[in-house]
């Protein structure tokens, strides 16, 4: 009996210790993010001395995951800086962002970030002091567009017909996108605003929404173009419009929303960011490495297969771009009434 108690005690101790270990991480966050001007004191920083950890915010196997892994592969192989990619999934990206912000700003923990840096924050899923200002951009890598598609037998076969149909049937047309506050939802909502229509948003991931469209359970889908291309090329669905400044390379006959008269051009950007306070020297080393990989022919052709546009930007330009996109997302979410901070 005595031994039994001893054992339970040990187990409880182990438990408490692991709890402490788990809780100590977020506690380290505050100084990292509130001290943006941490100076790089020593003139020569030996960097990198150990492998870097790249947080991927989405599940293994998704398009953005595979592209990120290819990129890290190239950086590791050609530039001699070892990077290990880890999927930290959850909270629409919040889990991964908070993990990275909880680490020291020394350049060993970076994140494959995207527009979700703004959506998760403004939706209220990040602490108040962990908005866009808590991050330092390293380089933008890609831009991805969303697209709107309907079934092949739908009564509307152009974007104008679709809008007209929605105006006649307000609130009836079902549009599947990835759920409230997601990028695809913002795109669909932006179209609603621009065209003065109202649709019913159905939260479904890309695979379920495609199945549901083919099976006739929803009227339209708003997904990343990458998730639509195959079905469109096979003639199983009809893509009404892509959302970007220019037409998509893989779907040259599909118009953009902008040229159809609806001024919606918001695109999903993806790049590399670190916690603010990372020494400028380290950032510039990372910037050089990632830009070289992004500009390589290898990566360009790889991204092309995925229907992803490669758009490298340096750290300074990326910081400005992120801030600009953050404002756009914030304004949009404000009008939708889902912005909490």
């Amino acid at each position: 009996m005595k031994n039994q108690k001893g054992f339970v005690f040990c187990l409880t101790l182990l438990l408490v210790l692991s709890l402490l270990a788990a809780c100590s991480q977020p506690a380290a966050t505050a100084p990292a993010s509130t001290d943006p001007a941490a100076p790089a004191s020593s003139p020569q920083i030996a960097y990198p001395e150990k492998p870097k950890d790249l947080t991927i915010l989405f599940g293994a196997g998704s398009a953005s995951d595979v592209v990120a892994r290819r990129l890290t592969d190239l950086v590791t192989k050609d530039i001699g800086q070892t990077i290990v990619a880890n999927n930290r999934v959850g909270g629409g990206g919040a889990v991964g962002y908070q993990h990275v912000l909880s680490t020291d700003p020394d350049g060993y923990n970076i994140v494959w970030n995207s527009t979700s840096i703004s959506t998760t924050y403004h939706q209220g899923n990040m602490p108040a002091d962990q908005g866009i200002e808590a991050f330092a951009g390293i380089a933008n890598i890609t831009l991805e567009s969303a697209a709107l598609a309907v079934g092949p037998d739908a009564p509307y076969q152009t974007i104008a017909e679709f809008v007209a149909y929605c105006q006649e049937h307000p609130g009836e047309v079902t549009v599947a996108n990835s759920g409230i506050g997601s990028f695809n939802h913002l795109v669909a909502a932006a179209l609603e605003n621009a065209a003065g229509i109202s649709v019913k948003h159905i939260p479904m991931d890309a695979k379920q929404s495609t199945t549901a469209l083919l099976g006739g359970q929803v009227d339209a889908i708003c997904n990343m173009t990458f998730d639509i291309v195959q079905q469109e090329q096979a003639g199983q669905i009809k893509t009404l419009a892509v959302v970007s400044e220019e037409r998509h390379a893989l779907l040259p006959e599909v118009p953009t929303l902008k040229e159809s008269g609806y001024d919606v051009t918001i695109m999903m950007y993806r790049g590399i960011a670190a916690p603010k306070g990372t020494p400028a020297e380290v950032i510039s080393k990372l910037e050089t490495a990632f830009l070289a990989a992004a500009n390589s022919e290898d990566f360009q052709s790889f991204a092309a297969q995925y229907g992803v546009e490669v758009k490298p930007m340096g750290a300074a330009e990326f910081d400005l771009y992120m801030a600009e996109q953050d404002q756009e997302v914030a304004d949009l979410m404000e009008t939708l009434g889902i912005k909490t901070q």
């Binding site: 909270g91 939706q123 209220g124 899923n125 939260p203």
Partner: peptide, 9 residues
């Protein structure tokens, strides 16, 4: 975790 429809905690 996250609410699957409204995306809140």
């Amino acid at each position: 975790g996250m609410d699957p429809v409204v995306g809140l905690q």
